[in-house]
């Protein structure tokens, strides 16, 4: 499965690039990631979040990096869901912003894992990546993922509508968090 998405962030390319290049930042806005740990300079260990299928982990390596312009990576070894990605950073015509072009490739396996992944992406797979990039932009421009009462859990807000009503959360709901 090939996915592409793009957004514009009102920050210089060097800053936007640096945020992405620190791969440990990716789970703050990518819904399907639980954690990314840098191993070496170009190697890292990734683990998926529950909606993507629990206990899915893989190693990855950066295959290309041009500071301020482009990063490419791919999973290594026998990953359950082999995947690769590239992201390019292009100065926008306004002189203040950076256009971000992301392209991801997943090899969806058979069996129950393949089903879980397909279910996660749903009927409009690019929507997930669009939402990831919206949060990426929020984090860079405003400092964090924006929460509302209807969609209080940031990147865990998977269901668009109906959602919880637009009224404040109870202490119990807050304590339970996204699992509620």
């Amino acid at each position: 499965m090939d996915l592409t998405a793009t957004t514009t962030v009102r920050k210089p390319a060097s800053e936007v690039y640096a945020f992405w290049r620190d791969l440990e930042n990716l789970p703050t806005f990518m819904a399907h990631l639980e954690e990314v740990r840098a191993a070496g300079d170009r190697t890292s260990h990734w683990s998926a979040a529950a909606p993507f299928g629990k206990d899915v982990e893989w190693d990855a390596e950066i295959t290309e990096e041009t500071p301020g312009e482009r990063i490419a990576w791919r999973s290594t070894g026998d990953a359950d869901v082999p995947n690769a990605g590239t992201v390019s950073f292009v100065p926008a015509p306004d002189g203040a912003s950076t256009e971000v072009y992301v392209s991801l490739v997943y090899e969806i396996p058979g069996g129950s894992l393949g089903k879980a992944v397909a279910k996660y992406f749903g009927e409009e797979p690019h929507q997930q990546l669009d939402d990831d990039l919206r949060r990426f932009k929020q984090v860079l421009e405003t400092g964090e993922v924006v929460r509302s009462d209807g969609a209080p859990w940031g990147k865990r807000a998977r269901k668009e509508f109906p959602q919880r009503p637009a009224q404040p959360l109870s202490d119990a709901e807050l304590a339970k968090g996204a699992q509620a």
């Binding site: 924006v146 509302s148 009462d149 209807g150 969609a151």
Partner: peptide, 30 residues
């Protein structure tokens, strides 16, 4: 940046709009 339901708004309006207090989930569910 202020509409966590930008995806819904984008479907209705072509591009998303800001969050608004007490004004449907289309404008964020605040």
């Amino acid at each position: 940046n202020t509409n966590p339901n930008a995806g819904i708004a984008e479907k209705m309006f072509g591009h998303p709009v800001a969050g608004i207090f007490g004004y449907s989930h289309l404008t964020g569910g605040f």
